[in-house]
Amino acid sequence: MKAGVWLPLFDELADPRVVADLAVDAEAAGWDGLFVWDQIVWRAPVLAVADPWVCLAAAATLTSRIALGPMVSPLSRRRPTKVVRESVSLDRLSRGRLVLGVGLGSDRFAQEYSRTGEPVADRTRAEMLDESLEILRAAWAGQPVHHHGTHHLVDDLTFAPRPVHDTIPVWVAGFPGNPRPLRRAAAHDGFFPVNLTSPDQLAEAVQRVQDLREDPARPFDVAIDLAPGTDPAPWLAAGATWLLTDLDPETLRLEIVRAMVREGPQRPA
């Protein structure tokens, strides 16, 4: 089991210095990772929001062991060539500790797509996500990227430098009952099922993803979010490999988050 601090970058946590300090505390307290939300805005009462890549870069400079990454980044509202540069730069800054969480995101919490002119339809954003992942994989491999898609164009570009470990792990978020996110996760390095209701639901989703994987022996992570104090044992038995902190973004208080981080992760008995 690995345990990660998962932070909404809102209000008192909307400061890269604060996030970096929490990352230092997390590493000292025995956490295995620090992951952050990727949002442009959020609904009231949240007012302030920080940029995930800047916060992660600040955390990377002050830590040496823990995994770091956005969890999750809706790639449909980011230019994939820009993400190539950002991801490799952060990976090299952290000496190979980046984990890239990706997903569709949702317009329902703060209308951050509809109010900024981004595509709202799930199908369109799913197409853009898949194209972006194709571009990222080719770019990270150091291959010339020839991508003429419906939504993105990369015409014979080679990107250097490459990631520290040749590629960057990609964890795919999605609802456990939807086949397309399951297939997308199976083609990458990890699955982050959202809105889980029981360990049995997780076990079923994990099995479906495993059945879709071309090489079931290749390392693969399953990350879930649990409220502090929840017994992790049934979830680990159902297939979770990472447990992330489930924090209410609308009631965040820095002093409570800092105390939780310094207490360290809850390990099964």
Results as ranks from 00 to 15, higher is better:
24 V>C: 11
108 R>G: 08
234 P>I: 09
166 D>W: 10
235 W>M: 12
63 T>G: 04
163 P>I: 02
12 E>Q: 15
199 P>A: 12
88 V>E: 03
58 A>E: 12
121 A>G: 13
248 D>E: 11
60 A>M: 00
13 L>V: 00
214 E>L: 11
35 F>M: 13
100 L>G: 09
54 V>P: 04
206 V>W: 07
57 A>K: 01
77 R>Q: 03
257 V>W: 03
142 G>D: 08
12 E>H: 14
153 L>W: 12
104 L>M: 14
22 L>R: 00
186 A>T: 06
163 P>V: 01
4 G>C: 03
52 P>I: 09
220 F>V: 08
102 V>P: 01
249 P>K: 05
173 A>F: 08
189 D>K: 07
83 V>S: 04
73 S>A: 15
194 V>K: 03
52 P>Y: 08
214 E>R: 14
240 A>I: 07
85 R>W: 10
222 V>H: 07
30 G>K: 13
226 L>I: 10
56 L>Y: 03
59 A>Q: 00
48 A>D: 15
24 V>T: 13
114 S>Y: 09
226 L>D: 09
162 R>E: 08
168 I>C: 06
166 D>P: 13
142 G>L: 12
111 Q>E: 15
189 D>L: 06
169 P>G: 07
192 F>E: 03
199 P>R: 06
33 G>N: 01
246 D>C: 13
76 S>W: 01
251 T>F: 05
4 G>P: 04
70 P>F: 03
247 L>R: 07
26 A>S: 07
182 L>D: 06
188 H>Y: 14
153 L>P: 00
74 P>G: 10
235 W>K: 10
15 D>R: 09
121 A>I: 06
79 R>Y: 11
13 L>N: 05
132 S>K: 05
82 K>I: 14
45 P>N: 07
19 V>I: 15
3 A>P: 02
36 V>F: 10
76 S>L: 03
195 N>D: 14
8 P>I: 06
132 S>N: 04
58 A>W: 12
192 F>G: 00
223 A>C: 08
112 E>G: 00
40 I>C: 09
163 P>N: 03
239 G>T: 13
27 E>Q: 10
30 G>F: 10
170 V>Q: 04
133 L>Q: 04
161 P>C: 08
137 R>E: 13
248 D>T: 01
101 G>Y: 04
68 L>Q: 02
112 E>N: 01
110 A>H: 08
164 V>W: 12
150 T>G: 15
187 A>F: 12
242 W>M: 05
165 H>C: 11
6 W>D: 02
223 A>R: 05
150 T>K: 14
215 D>Y: 00
37 W>R: 06
29 A>N: 02
140 W>V: 05
118 E>P: 05
94 S>Q: 08
220 F>W: 05
158 T>M: 14
30 G>V: 12
186 A>P: 02
168 I>D: 04
13 L>C: 05
178 N>G: 10
143 Q>E: 15
30 G>P: 13
23 A>R: 04
102 V>C: 08
57 A>M: 02
107 D>N: 15
66 I>M: 02
98 L>I: 10
259 A>V: 08
181 P>Q: 07
136 L>C: 06
232 P>D: 09
98 L>C: 10
170 V>M: 11
232 P>M: 08
99 V>R: 11
121 A>H: 09
21 D>F: 07
173 A>C: 05
12 E>I: 08
39 Q>I: 05
28 A>H: 13
176 P>V: 10
209 V>F: 07
111 Q>I: 00
46 V>R: 09
115 R>D: 12
171 W>C: 03
